[in-house]
Design a protein around this nucleic acid. Structure first.
Lengths: 135, 135
DNA sequence: TTCACAAATGCAACTTGGTTGCATTTAAAT
DNA sequence: ATTTAAATGCAACCAAGTTGCATTTGTGAA
């Protein structure tokens, strides 16, 4: 997929400084296929990363479109590589009720709702709960 | 719709004691057309209700199917009268990006996702963000 | 009606995800 | 090498929600 050093190009393109923390973070996101919580990240990035630094970088990355934030209805935000918009529509997320892993589901969400008059839809977010292939 | 004292029948039927707090709570839910946050409830139920009592009752009510909990992706749970299951499918929720009001949307959510092999879907929750009729 | 018991309440203390203010450090442009 | 704005780390903080425990209250049986 991505060549070595592509994360540096990514940071450059977004006008973000290439700091140690950011490079470690972005590499980790590229290696993980599942969404990561704050705790996942803190545990994975061995070198005791500061809480506020981590959260601030997650926010920067999200704003830059490097990662997207996922709310899996546990109240705890998770983050995954890539922008939420795929083909102009948001993708759905699958939350395993057993292992709590969050998967990004490719494929559009065809949705025909009867929204009442006067309501303007901006975006639709779908969370699917169930049991994943591993459980 | 509901006759006077129906909330008492509701509590009885669910095997819940008819306490002052519960009667006030359930009446409030019946009068409110929109989802209520902890703060909404605390502000509405004038008689300084205890935090843990309120949360515990919200949990009981949810388990009994009197109310349902809604996650509108702000990280703050909201609660609305009624069960989430309508015709065997969960209804969608509309969150106004302006006034933050959460509306329960009637009507099914027809959904055709390509869930990968080995994934078992239990339920689907949809949050629609946009601008409501009042804003 | 009263008695007894389980369940509900209220209080305080705690947990946790996330934020903020500020001094120090560092990336990178000149 | 110098400068400067942005990033980091630390501590203190905030808010949503939970827990343990003593007290009160609803309810069913005597």
């Amino acid at each position: 997929m991505m060549k070595t050093k592509d994360y540096e190009l990514l940071l450059e393109r977004k006008g973000l400084k290439k700091t140690k923390v950011r490079i470690a973070l972005i590499q980790h996101f590229m290696n993980m296929e599942h969404a990561q919580s704050y705790n996942d990240l803190q545990a994975a990035l061995v070198s005791e990363l500061d809480k506020s630094t981590l959260y601030r970088n997650l926010t920067s990355f999200e704003q830059a479109g490097i990662i997207h934030r996922i709310n899996d209805h546990t109240g705890i935000s998770k983050y995954a590589f890539g922008e939420p918009q795929i083909h102009g529509n948001e993708h759905a997320h699958f939350v395993c009720e057993c292992c709590e892993t969050v998967y990004c589901m490719e494929g559009l969400v065809p949705l025909q709702l009867n929204i009442p008059k006067g309501f303007k839809t901006n975006n639709v977010q779908t969370v699917i709960k169930g049991i994943c292939a591993k459980c």
